[in-house]
């Protein structure tokens, strides 16, 4: 237990100098695989940071995760297998793009539903109302209105 703690602390101390997002020594030799790794990195959360993907983060944990992702890719996993592996290990928290699942249905469907529902409702309402008069020009001013208007317009010096 103590030994493990010590190793942990050593890791902490080693990590103190600010590391930088993706490091040169992490990059995979196969450009296609590397680009897949980068793509995946952007969808994974660095769990000790505030809303940063592991692709952007300087934290040592992010580096470990980046290396892990590359390891899995090198081992021949597909993108979704890598994600499954990480979710099994760290939970849904690690995904920056929540999965399209039951508990996230509300989140994903909100936009489209609002847009379609709202759009339909608005369209119907405007059409129903406009049917009754958008095309008909308003009735012209009556004589009485005209005189009152003329009185108002000439009365420019009125201290309103």
């Amino acid at each position: 237990m103590r030994r493990m703690m010590a190793a942990f602390v050593a890791l902490l101390l080693l990590a103190l100098p600010a590391a930088h997002a993706v490091q040169p020594d992490e990059i995979m030799s196969d450009p296609a695989k590397e680009s897949r790794a980068r793509e995946l990195s952007r969808e994974l959360r660095c769990m000790v940071c505030q809303n940063q993907s592991i692709d952007d983060s300087d934290a040592p944990l992010a580096r470990d995760l980046r290396l892990l992702v590359r390891e899995r890719i090198a081992a021949g996993d597909s993108n979704s297998q890598v994600l499954d592996f990480l979710v099994a290990r760290y939970g849904d928290f690690v995904l920056l793009k929540p999965r399209f699942e039951r508990q996230n249905l509300l989140l994903w469907m909100l936009g489209p539903v609002l847009l379609l529902g709202g759009g339909l409702a608005l369209w119907l309402q405007i059409r129903r109302r406009s049917g009754s008069g958008a095309d008909v020009p308003p009735p012209p001013l009556t004589a009485d209105e005209k005189t009152r208007l003329a009185a108002l317009m000439s009365d420019d010096s009125k201290p309103s």
């Binding site: 103590r2 703690m5 010590a6 190793a7 602390v9 050593a10 101390l13 080693l14």
Partner: peptide, 13 residues
């Protein structure tokens, strides 16, 4: 000082 920082554990470092 390093050990003290690590709570009395003599770390590898």
């Amino acid at each position: 000082a390093m050990s003290a920082a690590a709570g009395g554990v003599v770390t590898a470092e």
